[in-house]
Computed example of a mutant assay.
Amino acid sequence: MASLKNSCFNKVRMCIFPKFYTYNTEDPEDYAFAGNETDGFDFTHFNPKFWAKLEKRISQLDELGIQADVILLHPYDKWGFSKMDKETDILYLKYAVDRLSHYKNVWWSLANEFDLLPWKSVEDWETYARVVMRRDPYGHLRSIHNCVKLYDHTHPWITHVSIQRIDVYKTSEAVTDWRKQYQKPIVVDECAYEGNINFGWGNITGEEMTRRFWEGCIRGGYLSHGEVYVQHKQIWWAHGGKLHGTSPERIAFLKKVMEDVPDGSAPLELTDGNHEANWDVPCLCKEDDHSYYLYYFGFFRPAFRTYELPEGCSYEIELIDTWDMTIKKLPGTYSGSIKIEMPEKQYMAIRMRRV
């Protein structure tokens, strides 16, 4: 909680059931159901002590302005919670929604990596979604998260797309296609993790994590951060504790830049009538009045950039170093055909504001 309080993050994904997986193999203090692993669980009775703890944490998150994306089911299990029968699943879902729906900061994630629960059919998930909707009088946000196989996010109960990257290399670049495909907000809830563990999903650099955030935001999406550094006894992804990576402060810098983006802005699509220099890098802009353009260059590092600015418009231009977290305003104003000198450095952005 202390780490989150001092961070820029405003949403946390959190499971109700414990998770048994690499780096996360210890039994929890309490369980959602009465009982324990040794004596067995009573799937007809819930454990009030556990639920009171969970409510306390959700309330604390709310005080910090953080949304609690509550994961209702997941496959990483040794206790039997992932293989409860359908009647027990429904009993549990009703109880969970009844207990938690009055918290204004709750979202519902039906599952983390639903496709790793092959014994639950699409019809089951659709039934579970109806149960959640009927028990929730406040209409909290709802989605379902994948591992490899994508759920059909066109279903009307899904309010936003919670998605894990499905390609080792292409991640937040796919936000453009997903927005067109689903016509819903895209939340890349796993674009991989900053860290150094042996799994490919958990050893990208802080630079690459920051790049993926910028790329996804400029394309009109939202992203979640995660961290797994094996040398630290507490791994954030599993146990919380302290954040050790280099990306969180850069993500905070990005958040401030995004807060300055004018209302009504959207990703710029390549057409004959807009900036000719937007075919190779994403741009977030307010195209209706040509008042704002934010270009992100990612791993490209040009020495200069030319633009044909909209006729009759003058701009103040800033160079943004997204890694060093600096903003340099260029002297004067710009109009017509221009050339911007750049530092031949990766992770740069150009911001233009009409004057």
Rank of each mutant, 00 (worst) to 15 (best):
D115C: 05
D115G: 07
V131D: 06
T154D: 04
V132G: 03
K104L: 00
E123W: 02
W119V: 00
Y103C: 12
D85G: 06
M84D: 00
L93A: 04
K149S: 09
W107N: 12
I144R: 02
L116W: 08
R130Q: 15
V122F: 04
D124F: 07
S109H: 12
H160R: 02
I163V: 13
K94Q: 14
D136I: 04
H160N: 07
H153N: 03
L141C: 06
A96C: 15
Y95L: 03
M84S: 06
D136M: 05
Y169T: 14
L110K: 05
C147S: 11
K120V: 05
H155S: 08
R165Y: 01
P156V: 08
L141N: 12
N112I: 06
L116K: 13
H140M: 02
K78N: 14
F81S: 07
I90N: 09
I144E: 02
Y95A: 08
R130V: 14
A129E: 11
W108K: 08
A96P: 00
L110I: 07
I90T: 13
S109R: 06
Q164H: 15
R165G: 06
D85V: 05
R99T: 14
K94P: 07
E123C: 03
V122P: 00
W119I: 01
S143G: 11
R134H: 10
L100F: 13
V97A: 12
G139L: 02
D152Q: 07
L100C: 09
L100A: 14
S172G: 01
L117M: 15
I90P: 08
L91S: 09
Y95N: 13
N112S: 11
T171V: 01
G139D: 05
E123Q: 14
I163F: 06
A129M: 13
G80I: 02
I163C: 01
T88H: 01
R165D: 01
S172P: 00
S162T: 13
W119A: 07
N105T: 09
M133R: 14
K94H: 13
